[in-house]
Computed example of a mutant assay.
Amino acid sequence: MTQTTVDSSLFQPTRLGPLHLPNRLVMAPLTRNRAGADGVPGSLMTAYYAQRASAGLIIAEGTTPNAVGQTYPHIPAIHSPAHVAGWRGVTEAVRSAGGRMFLQLQHGGRIGHPLTSGLTPVAPSPVPLPETIHTPDGRVPSVTPREMTALDIRSTVADFARAARNAVAAGFAGVEVHAANGQLLHQFMARNTNHRTDGYGGPVANRIRFAVEVTRAVADAIGPERVGVRISPANTVNGIEEGDTRHLYPALLEALADMDLAYLHLEFANPANPLFATVRDAWPGVLMANPDLGWPAPLPADGGRSAGERLLDAGADLISLGRGFLANPDLVERLRVDAPLNPVRDKYTMYVGGATGYTDYPTLTAPGRKTQATQPFPLDAVVR
């Protein structure tokens, strides 16, 4: 049976700093909760990422730069030699399969719990997450985080820089600083989670300060051409209310623009939203756009291809896709030949479990592949 080849700008090669990308499709960072209890990536994660090496770039899932930044059970980390060694196995497998990887650095701030990390979470202000949180003991009420001191802030900035150096040592081509989705950097930027009265709170210029300092420290540590930043303007996930989005992000992008970073990653991008044009006009470098595909609506039949093409036409340079890559290891080829896509099986295995819903999605060349499922922690609730 003859297959049709789709002519799309998504499949055009491009460059990202020193990297040659064979296409403009990026695998977005996806929380999958499959590391060891100690945060070390193992063989299951190695297989998962190697299966998806045909992406122009893989951005590996949010990985904590220090112990107190851990969000949920079985989240990977990058602050010990064991973490570096575990991730090195992943990057070597992806590189052997022809791929390239960045690592997302994610500090959860108030999104954490002593049952998971053994530590009281820290945040810009003692404002708890307004919902329960998943722990090894199931979903429990969130705890009030400890307000970060000036020393905490300085040491956390240093932890991000150290984590970036560890990521390069582990074989990553670069890192993405996570300043979105209600994580720590976003908590500093938002009015409802930042009640500080020092130089990190109050006016916009103060509330963006921590994100700028982290990004600059990471860029100084490994080179700006190896560093991206992810933002999600007006996103209210994890109880975030920015309060002044239209002033916040122009100021943030102006502060970051002179660093010559590898890219800016805009989440929930929609060219029909005036915010997209504002970001594109304000950002002088590579813009990676993650299309708004209507989560939790089902994945579009074309996997987001048409949405990605509209964003490229509107000025984006790279397109990141999440669920499409989650369920389709060979997503690039399926989109290229207009083949049917695997649907995401269920929300449960997106965040919880072993091989099932993770490494056992079939490819066009291996439609019947099955793997044995394992469960790393009690399956009592969907993570989120």
Score class of each variant (00 low, 15 high):
L252S: 06
M259F: 10
P203W: 11
E241F: 12
T193A: 11
V229R: 00
T236L: 11
I240E: 01
F210W: 09
R196D: 12
N238V: 06
E241G: 00
T245P: 04
V237S: 04
I208P: 00
G243E: 06
R196V: 13
M259Y: 11
E225Y: 01
D244A: 15
I240V: 15
A251R: 11
D244H: 14
G239F: 02
S232I: 13
A251G: 08
T197H: 13
H265K: 01
N235L: 14
E241R: 13
Y263L: 15
G202A: 09
M259Q: 14
V229P: 04
N206Q: 15
G228F: 02
A251E: 14
N206I: 12
A257R: 12
L266K: 03
V237A: 10
V229I: 14
G201I: 00
L261F: 07
F210M: 14
T197P: 11
L264T: 12
L252H: 06
V204P: 05
T193R: 01
D198H: 13
P233V: 12
H195F: 04
P233G: 10
I231G: 02
G201S: 10
I222R: 03
P250I: 09
L261H: 09
I231K: 01
G239D: 04
G228E: 03
V227F: 04
G201W: 01
L248W: 03
I222N: 05
I208V: 15
H195C: 08
G202W: 07
G228Y: 06
T236K: 12
A205G: 15
A262V: 03
G199P: 11
L256M: 11
E254I: 02
D198P: 07
A205T: 15
N206V: 06
L248F: 05
I240M: 10
L264C: 14
H247W: 13
A217K: 08
E254S: 13
A217E: 04
G228P: 02
E213R: 13
D198Q: 08
D198R: 03
N206W: 05
A219Q: 06
D198N: 11
V204E: 01
R226P: 00
G201N: 04
Y200T: 02
L261Q: 05
L253P: 05
H265C: 12
L253V: 07
R207L: 08
G202S: 13
D244V: 07
G223W: 03
T197W: 02
M259C: 00
R196Y: 14
T236C: 14
A219V: 00
G201H: 02
R207G: 00
A221T: 06
A262S: 13
T193I: 07
E225G: 12
R207S: 10
G199L: 14
N206G: 14
I240L: 09
G202D: 02
N194T: 09
Y200C: 00
D244K: 02
D258G: 09
D258H: 15
A251C: 13
A257T: 07
D260Q: 15
H265R: 02
R230C: 00
A257G: 11
N235G: 13
L264V: 10
V227Q: 03
D220R: 09
R207P: 03
L253C: 05
E254F: 00
E225F: 07
